[in-house]
């Protein structure tokens, strides 16, 4: 199969890779580029475990072809923390015990991050609406929603400083 060359920007770095047109962004991230933080839960857009931010919007990377990302700006869970300095959402997920098995966590953090960048004061109803494309089977969502709420003031503080 002929492979296409794709140039894109991943977590702030310009990269290029070769892929087949039938390979999804998720597949290329995980199997070709070694970025395994985005998870495959359903591979058909129904669980959100593979959520990444593409050109400022959250997408299911299983429902994006890698060839489509030519010239795109992509952020994955691997690009959220800076070294040992965690993003306030990541810290909140830890402190609020918002993960059990953790497989859905990267997707939830990417979705929540995109939400709080648009709506820094999102309330519970808004958070639940925005995160409804991300399935979690362990937590019952209670502590996830609380973690996002508790990250809001930290995030604003971090922005101001």
């Amino acid at each position: 199969m002929r492979r296409s060359q794709v140039q894109t920007r991943l977590n702030g770095n310009d990269i290029d890779f070769l892929c087949e047109p039938r390979q999804s962004l998720l597949e290329v991230l995980r199997d070709e580029l070694g970025f395994t933080g985005s998870k495959e839960g359903c591979n058909n857009g129904n669980c959100g475990a593979c959520t990444v931010i593409m050109n400022g919007r959250i997408v299911n990377s299983c429902c994006v072809l890698a060839v489509e990302t030519e010239g795109a700006e992509i952020q994955t869970i691997e690009g959220v923390a800076h070294g040992e300095k965690l993003h306030p959402l990541q810290q909140a997920f830890l402190e609020e015990a918002a993960l059990q098995c953790g497989i859905c966590t990267p997707g939830f953090i990417m979705s929540a991050k995109a939400l709080l960048e648009r709506e820094p004061n999102a309330d519970e109803a808004r958070i639940r609406h925005w995160l409804a494309g991300n399935l979690c089977r362990c937590t019952g969502y209670d502590k996830i929603v609380k973690a996002v709420l508790s990250a809001e003031p930290q995030l604003q503080e971090a922005k101001q400083s």
Binding site: T36, G37, L86, Q90, F93, L94, L99, T105, I109
Partner: peptide, 13 residues
Amino acid sequence: GVEKVTGKAQYGA
């Protein structure tokens, strides 16, 4: 926890 919120934790797949 940190491994899991940063996407570094290694799952089977």
